[in-house]
């Protein structure tokens, strides 16, 4: 299996504060990779530096074999991104935002079908700002899937969703994974990570303290429950 994401020695500081300390990781094609860590551990910065949205101080990032800086437009034909904070124009409606996003790609997915799949098919003519937090979150996952991506980045994908909606999103993502989609996600829900992720990386203050599978994490920490394992590992500085 080839790597969909290859990152080496990623370093980033904001002024005095170093947010990423030489992070290297690689995500195999067709797998789900979870970036975990407390608030401020550097998850979002990692994603933004990988994507070339933020300029890393040093290190390299290659997505689907492309350099996100040099091949930005070619790369983002095949990569979908859902940012943690959703951004949209003031008065825009759901169908307008979808159409405006879809028109940027050469062969976009059928967005009204995607909206239906994510349970917001009846909200197409609603204003985006009038949606509930969970509906808006699902809309932004839809936007990330409109390019028919080979690789998708989902930053805090199910924040704000109720239990039912979370399960639905998991199911759709698992199906997409079976079709060969590579997913990089961040999450604070350990049940979600356990259900979805093939491999995880736990970040602490910009450095990885654990990298491996969920069961390896449990083994290493000696815990039966993954959430306990996560808490022990993310407090442990040994690695």
């Amino acid at each position: 299996m080839t790597a969909a994401v290859n990152v080496t020695g990623l370093t980033k500081s904001y002024g005095e504060k170093t947010v990423l300390k030489g992070l290297s990781l690689s995500v195999k094609s067709g797998t789900v990779f979870g970036l975990l860590g407390a608030n401020g551990a550097g998850k979002t910065t990692t994603i933004e530096c990988m994507l070339g949205i933020k300029k890393a101080d040093s290190g390299t990032s290659s997505l689907l074999g492309l350099d996100p800086k040099k091949d930005r437009r070619r790369l983002f034909e095949q990569v979908g991104v859902q940012f943690q904070e959703s951004q949209y124009q003031n008065e825009i409606r759901v169908n307008e935002l979808c159409e405006e996003t879809a028109c940027l790609y050469s062969s976009p997915a059928d967005w009204s079908e995607l909206c239906k799949k994510f349970g917001i098919g009846d909200k197409l003519s609603a204003q985006v700002k009038s949606l509930s937090g969970g509906e808006r979150q699902r809309l932004f996952i839809v936007l990330a899937l409109i390019p028919k991506p080979k690789l998708v980045f989902l930053d805090e994908l199910t924040t704000g969703l109720d239990a039912r909606a979370r399960r639905d999103v998991w199911k759709i993502l698992s199906e997409l994974k079976k079709e060969g989609l590579t997913i990089v996600l961040t999450s604070h829900f350990m049940d979600e990570v356990e259900a979805l992720c093939d491999e995880i990386c736990i970040l602490k203050k910009g450095s990885p303290v654990f990298m491996g599978t969920v069961s390896e994490a449990k083994e290493k920490s000696g815990c039966e429950k993954f959430e306990d394992a996560y808490l022990i590992l993310s407090e442990d500085n040994a690695e």
Binding site: I53, R73, F76, V81, Q89, L104, S106
Partner: peptide
């Protein structure tokens, strides 16, 4: 305004020029 609201940031992660 689009820059401040990070709408341009979202466009940056698309093939838009």
């Amino acid at each position: 305004d689009y820059r401040e609201k990070k709408i341009l940031k979202r466009f940056k992660a698309t093939p838009a020029s």
